[in-house]
């Protein structure tokens, strides 16, 4: 009976998704003329090189046009990290130490992890420093750095993230983001206004406040994700 109802619901949902999408032509030009923009996408494409001189339009949208949204997004990640910590909190018994892994990992994994760990960190830093020039940015770079920390946490028994350092990095990055935004409010008119010189397109130092904000986001995301992984890895039930 339940299965029948679920299949009925799936049929209704599937039909109501299929019906509008059958009208949508795949690959049709939906953003219109770029010189005289009539849609939001065309406006962003035409104004990003001249207004912000940022090569990557997606970075310009995420950090500048929709910068307030990104501030909310990093706050959501921060809330998720805090929530996981408080949900999984349990008082430790006397003399009990949390261990990341229960078995020692093999020699091969340990040597390989030590070899590849700095390379992963450098790749992550590259991705978020060049976020306004190449594909990538703060979120991607932060996630890559967290992956590097994860590799070390899984290979070495005594590798732990220092939560004090993580909290400081996270707070400083968040303060940088908000104070750059307030600087826009003081110098210009609106919160997160681009008040620095925008430079020339495709230079490393271009785009005004965009690289600063994306680097801060990179540090913040890396610290938050590493904190989440450390919290989850150090619980032991069995």
């Amino acid at each position: 009976m339940k299965k029948l109802l679920v299949l009925l619901l799936l049929a209704v949902v599937g039909y109501s998704l299929y019906k509008p999408l059958s009208q949508v032509e795949f690959g049709a030009d939906r953003i219109g003329d770029i010189e005289n923009p009539t849609t939001v996408g065309a406006y962003y494409l035409s104004h990003t090189p001249s207004d912000l001189s940022v090569a990557n339009v997606i970075t310009a949208i995420v950090v500048n046009y929709r910068g307030f949204d990104t501030l909310g997004e990093v706050s959501v990640l921060f809330l998720a990290a805090t929530g996981i910590g408080s949900i999984l909190y349990r008082r430790r018994k006397e003399g009990e130490h949390s261990e990341t892994i229960t078995q020692p990992s093999s020699q091969l994994l340990q040597a390989g992890a030590k070899l590849i760990y700095p390379a992963i960190l450098v790749l992550g830093a590259y991705v978020f420093i060049h976020g306004h020039l190449t594909p990538g940015g703060g979120f991607q770079g932060g996630a890559i750095i967290a992956t590097g920390f994860l590799l070390m946490m899984m290979s070495y028994k005594d590798f732990h993230m220092n939560h004090t350092v993580l909290t400081w990095v996270e707070s400083l990055a968040g303060i940088t983001f908000v104070s750059v935004g307030i600087g826009g409010l003081i110098v210009g008119k609106t919160f997160l206004e681009n008040f620095l010189a925008i430079g020339t397109l495709n230079d490393l130092f271009s785009g005004g406040i965009i690289p600063i904000i994306y680097i801060a986001v990179g540090f913040k995301v890396a610290a938050e994700l590493a904190g989440v992984l450390d919290t989850l890895l150090s619980i032991k039930e069995k």
Binding site: P135, G136, F139, A143
Partner: peptide, 19 residues
Amino acid sequence: APDVALTEAAIGIALTTII
């Protein structure tokens, strides 16, 4: 969509699987 592909590769493949 190379930006989205990079995000999905870092977060979807590595971090989601590990949690």
